[in-house]
């Protein structure tokens, strides 16, 4: 057995473990925001490890660059997708877990102009947040 195979196999198994954990997390966590935590972080890491394994196994510049591009793309899009989806879920009023302790976003959406197509954003920061 050579080192390349050993490292690639370990990366594959680690990626599989993270991917499995993220899927279990999506089922097990109690509200949509925590499910996004599990799906975004562990899922991206697992997929990234598997892509790393592929780049090691083939060991050519073109393939390494390609799998890096996919990984970079995942790093770029996974948080953006989670952000857009989290905002949509919040805006649509998906309930949070009852043990959520604090919600500084509550009541910050502009209720007045609910025109279709116009995206809701938090209105200007109020005075109740103790920061400059």
């Amino acid at each position: 057995m050579n080192w390349v195979e050993l490292i690639a196999g370990v990366l594959l198994l680690a990626g599989a473990a993270f991917v499995l954990v993220s899927a279990i997390g999506v089922v097990r966590f109690p509200d949509v925001y925590m499910r996004m935590h599990a799906a975004t972080k562990a899922g991206t890491l697992g997929a990234g490890l598997m892509l790393g394994a592929a780049s090691i196994v083939f060991g050519e510049l073109g393939i390494t660059v390609r799998s890096f591009v996919v990984f970079f793309f995942l790093l770029l899009t996974a948080p953006v997708a989670a952000h857009v989806l989290g905002r949509a879920a919040y805006y649509a009023g998906v309930p949070r877990w009852e043990r959520t302790k604090l919600d500084e976003l509550a009541g910050r959406y502009d209720e007045a102009d609910g025109t279709p197509g116009e995206l809701g954003r938090p209105v200007q920061r109020g005075d109740d947040i103790p920061y400059p």
Binding site: G43, A54, V70, L74, V94
Partner: peptide, 25 residues
Amino acid sequence: SLPDRVVALDLVGLLAVSVISVVAI
């Protein structure tokens, strides 16, 4: 809710990307 389903579908898409890299190996 619908966002829950979309989160899970997004994860399935990510898993499909991982499947492709494993099958490539």
